[in-house]
Design a protein around this nucleic acid. Structure first.
Lengths: 233, 233
DNA sequence: GTGATCGTGTGACGCGCGTCACAGGCCGCG
DNA sequence: CGCGGCCTGTGACGCGCGTCACACGATCAC
């Protein structure tokens, strides 16, 4: 981690409703830092309360079970916020956060952040919308964990990846870069081995194909069917 | 469900920071209703956006898997709020809500609620703290679902029930009324049968005892050990 | 009373998937 | 070049727990 000089605080949807003067003042109040990929930004067991904005790069929110298994809760890319929970309620951090690639972040103390929320209702509302989203996603994940088997959860995750992937003219979805099996496993709470087996089953059924630089979902429809037929019975 | 006349809006922590005049005005803006136990208050597939305050009684937030399995997300008792997510982000409801016993609720439209949040930063902050709590609880549940086996989840739930139960002089925890097995099952995502088996194992080990009117946890320590030893390995 | 409904208890079956173990491919580094 | 580290692939084993099936008691309606 290296401290850096203070650039402008732009491209953060949460702060859209501030005037550019207010944003500049806030930027000066921030501490700016740069992290290398893999570096911890928040340690679950630390008791800081700071709030972070992702300026460039991306971070991953994870919990580690005591057995060392990693559970990925969320990925947050440039423009996002993290660390708000501890700032809001004063409790210890609930998860750890690490940089995915090289990442620069700007941070505020809890007090500064709360002041912004108090002074700017629109920012407060935007934050509430974000919290609401997180709750919805968590609920969906609890549902999946409760009703789907491990391999169907992999299917579901693949389907989610399709949504954000480029479509080819033929209707295929090209997921790039190729996701690392253990990352998928951490997202859906299973093992690397299971992910590998599922992916191979799917490629045997000609539903996905592994190219050199992308994972291609050939038949999104059929993949969707695999998920829904189990969700529904 | 029956419509009722408008009483006062008291005992809602979320609204503590309002003056009593403001609270009275808000009370008049609410629709007041009474539901019998088991009645649906929010249907997951409806597209209302109203926000509800629980005045007396309690409600349960649930999702149903399409196979009919019920997954309990949260119980909210008098003084609580529910239905905020849809009001905040305008998306459809993410869960259903039913009355647990006879329950009276007061509701606001999304617009009215958002106006309160905008005009009263302290209410907004209180709501954010509540959302933060929900997120933390969800995270803990995801962790449990990912790392604990079904019977350990039952142990963990029992332990949680102990926290809110009365202690006897001998240090036992008397959980009353006796929880229905299928309710526990819905909370920890397992089956009624598994809960019954776990409970019997525990009573064989003299860790719990089933009295006529209460479930008594004789050895809270040992129960805690059962959970932690697995969480940790 | 009788029947219905709800909560509980328990045995047997079986398969999903986590775990362990090992092999091969690819890459960067000295 | 060979070595070590990361990612992937696959076989074998085994047990946790969901599913089905059935029985018993308690409560309530009538």
């Amino acid at each position: 981690m290296t401290e850096v000089a203070t650039p402008a605080l732009v491209g953060i949807p949460l702060l859209d409703s501030l005037t550019s003067d207010e944003r500049d003042a806030l930027a000066r109040a921030c501490r700016w830092k740069k992290y290398a990929g893999g570096e911890q930004i928040i340690d679950r067991s630390s008791d800081s309360r700071d709030v972070f904005f992702v300026i460039t790069g991306a971070v991953r929110v994870v919990i580690y079970s005591l057995s060392g298994r990693e559970i990925a809760l969320d990925d947050i890319s440039a423009g996002g916020v993290f660390g708000e929970l501890a700032a809001l309620d004063g409790s210890p951090r609930s998860a750890s956060v690490m940089a995915i690639g090289d990442t620069t972040v700007a941070s505020l103390t809890a007090e500064q952040f709360l002041r912004v929320l108090r002074d700017h209702p629109d920012v407060a509302l935007a934050l509430m919308r974000r919290l609401a989203r997180v709750i919805r996603v968590s609920g969906a994940r609890i549902l999946d964990l409760s009703t789907l088997g491990a391999n169907n959860r992999v299917h579901a995750d693949l389907l989610a990846l399709c949504r954000t992937a480029k479509r080819t003219p033929e209707g295929h979805a090209r997921i790039r870069p190729i996701p690392v099996h253990s990352d998928i496993a951490a997202r859906v709470s299973t093992t690397r081995e299971t992910v590998a087996r599922v992916l191979n089953d799917l490629s045997r059924q000609k539903i996905v194909r592994r190219d050199a630089d992308a994972l291609v979902v050939l038949d999104v429809e059929r993949l969707r069917d695999l998920v829904e037929e189990v969700r529904g019975e």
